[in-house]
Design a protein around this nucleic acid. Structure first.
Length: 739
DNA sequence: AGCACGCCGACT
DNA sequence: GTCGGCGTGCTC
């Protein structure tokens, strides 16, 4: 404490507020707040700081001077408390945050918060204590000491415990040597979490088409500048190998790379493939990363030590220093949509991120989204097509099983055709996969006496029986209750009937037919969480099961080399629920799931149980003619004004009464362009409609005051003041709006 | 987003 | 008579 900091009365002198800066704080307010900069504090745009907001302290990002609100009375200004010792959030990133906030109508502070979500990473990782040889030799050179010396001479940078473990001696050996002056301790920077990937580590052998596509991507990277490439080709056509070449080229140019994957596809298999190609693992980013690791990835990405991140959608908000390429794998996957707090589609925001950064984006999928198809057709995206599977990986032989002609036996759901195929497959020692996109035992339970159907008290959906847990669960809101013995309506005991199949019920049927085979259910509600699930997926890949009954997640990114039969239990699910994307989604799902078979070189088959074998989706799957399917689908969407061509539509979700909602709707209709359709949905039905994607443009308003609602739409249309209150907006892709 | 304040219903 | 519901306002 210097004398200068006290005045004559011994009180600290107030810091002169010579300067103030805008700071983006994690609050739902329209823009940054102003804060005083204490003298000598090194603060500039992008600095990550701690500031007081009311009684609490928050992390904020110093924003650009131009965002300064000059109307804040000087006496309100409070000083910045701390500048974190970490690289500043780049100009690009700040622009990106601002853009995303504008596009999604989210308060910018809430978007900014996603970029600084590893708080403990904001100050540097502690240095680790390391050992260096002093040149002294221990007086007595025991075998253990000799090995320690050799190891330490061969490579530097050992920690005390690391060296002991590497040599296979106890730490006390090292301790004694330290006492005798053999080692000195120094402080070393913390070790990088991953090695540096080497573009030339193991270049792949590519087929003609692949080599051509890879060349095109390399050129794109070499040229630099923004551009989007859609690369499509069936499972096994080598998309990953091809886009790895774009990664390699970017690495050679000294830039960082982001590979976005749906969370479930971030498997050890993918990481292994990357490591095989580049000789080091990519940084990993997903929701169940342990906090310590999360911090390290965040920091080392910011510092540039991590060159490639493979991550789920939120990796888009990592503070890359010099990002030069984004890959969006499985770009059609709905897991890219975030539907809480900030509503965004990471695929589209990735395109925006690369446009702002002036570098290429690559979208990859075996079954591209209709949105991306349309963008490619319109010439906004380049297109690279990888034909067929190469080498021995033949396409599976796909057939429909017409359930009208080959019905399952009473009480069952598997056609005799399916059962006999399973029998043949497991008889040969190969694996069979039965796909049913329905968790639990039965999707509907009713009373056989009075017809009572068990419904969720909060939502409009049926309660799904989970027999293993003994519960009835709502898959929409999470509500759960024990399975009652008596009907709550008429009181009759033991007359509840399970209607329809879920994976648990199929497993039961399979176990009846194949009691001596190993059957496993793979679904997202597996006990033990994601971790356990990953283990089980690996176990299946290693052949530790004969028959797998799986939900949607088996369709994604995981390869099961011994799988030679894929059976789709009910291909018709989801084709009749009023979702404009029903056909697209079903086509994608069935393509992906049937693609799980046939990667072995052995003959493999796919059987698709359906009541509508002539449906365009089934025809497309069987014939493998994806182009015809998309062509038809796009024409259909255009004709019926559905996404991505659909008219502007807003959905009001009002927790208030119907007449309030009518008032809101009147206000919105007055403010909206004539082409807009404004629908009113109640709190129960609205979330479902949103998830089903019935609208191209979705506006979810949680109105706190009725007169705010008009403001929401004017803000949405960018004419008028930003409204107050909480707004949740989700936008579907609008092919033109961000290019 | 979080938190405080303030005004009306069912309870120790 | 209080406890506590959520509607409203505020945070540089």
């Amino acid at each position: 404490m210097t004398r200068d900091s006290f005045d004559l009365f011994g009180k600290p002198a107030a810091p002169p507020a010579s300067r103030s800066v805008p700071v983006m704080v994690p609050l739902p307010v329209p823009g940054p707040y102003s804060y005083a900069v204490p003298d000598g504090m090194p603060v500039f745009p992008g600095s990550v700081v701690q500031v007081p907001v009311g009684p609490r302290k928050v992390i904020g990002i110093v924003w650009d001077e131009s965002a300064q609100d000059g109307n804040v009375p000087a006496r309100k200004l409070r000083p910045i408390e701390h500048v974190f010792d970490c690289p500043p959030v780049s100009d690009e990133m700040r622009k990106f945050i601002q853009w995303v906030a504008g596009y999604t109508l989210t308060p910018p502070g809430l978007v900014a918060r996603m970029a600084v979500r590893a708080p403990a990473a904001l100050d540097p990782e502690p240095m680790v204590e390391g050992l260096v040889l002093t040149g002294e030799t221990p007086d007595r050179l025991t075998p253990a000491r000799k090995r320690v010396l050799e190891m330490a001479e061969n490579s530097a940078g050992w920690t005390r415990l690391g060296l002991a473990r590497a040599v296979g001696v106890s730490a006390s050996v090292i301790d004694t040597m330290m006492k005798k002056g053999v080692f000195d301790t120094v402080f070393l920077p913390p070790p990088p979490i991953v090695g540096t990937p080497d573009a030339d580590h193991a270049p792949p052998v590519l087929s003609g088409d692949q080599a051509e596509a890879a060349e095109a991507l390399r050129d794109l990277v070499a040229e630099g500048g923004f551009g989007v490439t859609l690369i499509d080709g069936v499972t096994g056509s080598g998309k990953t190998e091809v886009y790895f070449e774009a990664v390699a080229e970017t690495l050679k140019r000294g830039k960082q790379v982001l590979i976005l994957l749906p969370e479930i596809a971030l498997t050890s298999v993918f990481l292994k493939r990357f490591e095989d190609r580049f000789g080091a693992k990519p940084g990993e980013w997903h929701s169940d990363l342990p906090p310590r690791m999360r911090e390290k990835v965040w920091r080392q990405t910011a510092e540039g030590a991590v060159r490639v991140v493979a991550g789920a959608r939120s990796a888009l908000f990592l503070p890359f220093q010099e990002l030069g390429l984004i890959i969006v794998d499985e770009e059609h996957d709905s897991a890219y949509k975030q539907e809480d707090r900030v509503f965004y589609n990471a695929r589209d925001m990735a395109v925006v991120r690369s446009r702002i950064g002036g570098f290429p984006a690559v979208l990859a999928s075996a079954t591209p989204s209709v949105e991306s198809q349309v963008n490619a057709m319109a010439g906004r995206y380049e297109r690279l097509h990888l034909p067929g599977r190469f080498a021995e990986a033949a396409m599976p032989d796909l057939k429909t099983v017409d359930l009208r002609r080959h019905p399952p036996q009473r009480g069952g759901f598997l056609s005799p055709v399916m059962l006999s195929a399973i029998k043949d497959t497991v008889g040969r020692g190969e694996q069979a996969l039965l796909f049913l996109n329905r968790r639990g035992y039965a999707p509907l339970t009713l009373c056989r006496v009075c017809g009572h159907r068990f419904q969720c008290p909060n939502c409009a959906s049926w309660l799904v029986e989970h027999r293993f847990r003994g519960q009835l669960m709502c898959h929409h809101c999470g509500h759960a209750e024990p399975v009652p013995e008596a009907c709550p309506e008429c009181g009759t005991l033991d007359h509840l009937a399970a209607c329809g199949p879920g994976v648990e019920r199929i497993a039961e049927e399979v176990e009846q037919h194949f009691p001596d085979k190993r059957t496993i259910i793979l679904s997202s509600d597996m006990a033990g969480g994601v971790k356990r699930l990953r283990l089980e997926l690996d176990a299946v890949a290693n052949g530790e099961a004969d028959i797998v009954i799986g939900t949607q997640l088996v369709a994604k990114g995981h390869n099961f080399p011994l799988m030679t039969l894929v059976g789709v239990v009910d291909a018709d699910i989801g084709l009749s629920n009023g979702d404009p994307r029903a056909a697209e989604r079903t086509f994608q799902l069935l393509s992906q799931v049937t693609g799980r078979a046939g990667r072995t070189g052995r003959k493999s088959i796919g059987l698709i149980q359906t009541y509508q074998p002539s449906h365009p989706v089934m025809q497309a799957i069987i014939s493998g003619d994806a182009d015809a399917f998309y062509e038809r689908e796009i024409a259909e969407r255009e004709k019926t004004s559905l996404p991505p061509f659909g008219r502007l539509a807003a959905v009001i979700v009002s927790s208030e009464n119907r007449s309030d909602a009518e008032n809101h709707a009147r206000g919105l209709r007055a403010a909206a362009p004539p082409s807009a359709t404004i629908d009113i949905l109640g709190p129960a039905e609205a979330p479902l409609a949103l998830i089903r994607g019935r609208y191209r443009f979705r506006l979810l308003v949680h109105a706190r005051r009725s007169d705010d609602v008009q403001g929401y739409l004017s803000a949405m249309l960018d004419k008028g003041p930003k409204p107050r209150g909480s707004i949740h907006v989700q936008l579907d892709i609008d092919p033109q709006s961000f290019l």
